[in-house]
Computed example of a mutant assay.
Amino acid sequence: MSAKRIATVTPVSEEAATGKVAAVFADIKATKNITFVPNLWRVLATNPDHLELVWTRLKAIMHPEACGRASKLDPLVREIIALAVSATNGCAYCVNSHTAAVRKLGLDVEALGEVMAVVGLFNTTNSLADAYQIEPDILPPLE
């Protein structure tokens, strides 16, 4: 019997991680306050430089407090945005990950439904506006 397939490449196990990969794995667990390295990161670890690049960018944007920076958006808002984009892009892995994150941050099932209703509504209206090639007439201020 073969092992369960996780991706198109063999993920790097936490036990096999060394050097840069081990350091990034440790930072992921510490920053996210989790006890394991999720599959996404284990797969990206097949290219240590790419793993480090993606993690550094994600950490700076999604966990700015861990980088010593304040954010105008609270963690729940950042995760709701990530969930909305993930649902729109059809990424099951990310939808599950960010749904877990928003629930961990206190969003209840009813509010989750409201988030998904907004996502669905604007996927529809965006598609309609794009399909009709409607000229924008409500513009944001420049400053």
Rank of each mutant, 00 (worst) to 15 (best):
K72R: 13
I61Y: 10
L76A: 13
T35W: 04
V37H: 06
P75I: 05
A66L: 07
H63Y: 15
V77N: 10
H63N: 11
L76W: 03
N47F: 07
V54K: 03
A70T: 14
E52Q: 08
P38Q: 08
H63Q: 08
R42V: 01
L51E: 03
L44F: 12
R78H: 05
A70V: 13
V54I: 13
N47P: 02
P64A: 07
R69Y: 08
I80S: 02
R69A: 15
A70G: 12
R42N: 02
K72W: 11
L76D: 00
R57D: 04
T56L: 01
V37N: 02
L51P: 01
V54Y: 06
I80D: 00
H63P: 00
T56K: 07
W41S: 00
T46Y: 02
M62Y: 08
H50C: 06
E79P: 02
D74N: 15
C67R: 13
K59R: 15
V77D: 08
L58P: 00
D49V: 01
V77E: 11
F36D: 13
A70C: 06
E65T: 11
E79D: 14
C67V: 15
D74Q: 05
P48W: 01
R78C: 05
E52N: 09
T35I: 07
A60V: 01
A45Y: 03
I61D: 09
N33H: 12
P48N: 05
H50L: 12
W41Y: 15
R69D: 10
R69N: 11
A45S: 09
A70I: 07
K72V: 15
R78P: 03
V77I: 12
L58V: 13
R69M: 14
P75W: 09
L73G: 06
K59H: 05
I34W: 01
A60R: 12
G68L: 08
F36S: 14
E79Q: 14
R69W: 06
R78D: 03
V54L: 07
T56N: 11
V77L: 13
P64C: 02
L58H: 09
K72I: 15
T56A: 11
L76M: 14
M62A: 13
P75D: 09
L76G: 01
N47S: 10
G68R: 08
I61V: 14
T56W: 00
A60G: 08
T56Y: 01
E65A: 15
V43Q: 00
C67I: 02
M62I: 04
P64T: 06
G68D: 05
L53E: 09
H50A: 10
P38L: 08
H50W: 05
L40D: 06
I80C: 12
R69H: 13
P48S: 08
N47Y: 07
I61Q: 10
W55R: 02
A70N: 12
M62E: 11
K72Y: 14
N39G: 04
D49H: 03
S71I: 03
V54E: 07
T35G: 15
H50G: 04
N47E: 11
P75Q: 10
E79G: 02
A45M: 06
L73I: 11
M62N: 08
V37C: 03
T56D: 09
N39K: 11
L76K: 14
T35H: 13
C67N: 14
L73N: 10
I34K: 08
V37M: 09
A66F: 06
V37G: 04
M62H: 09
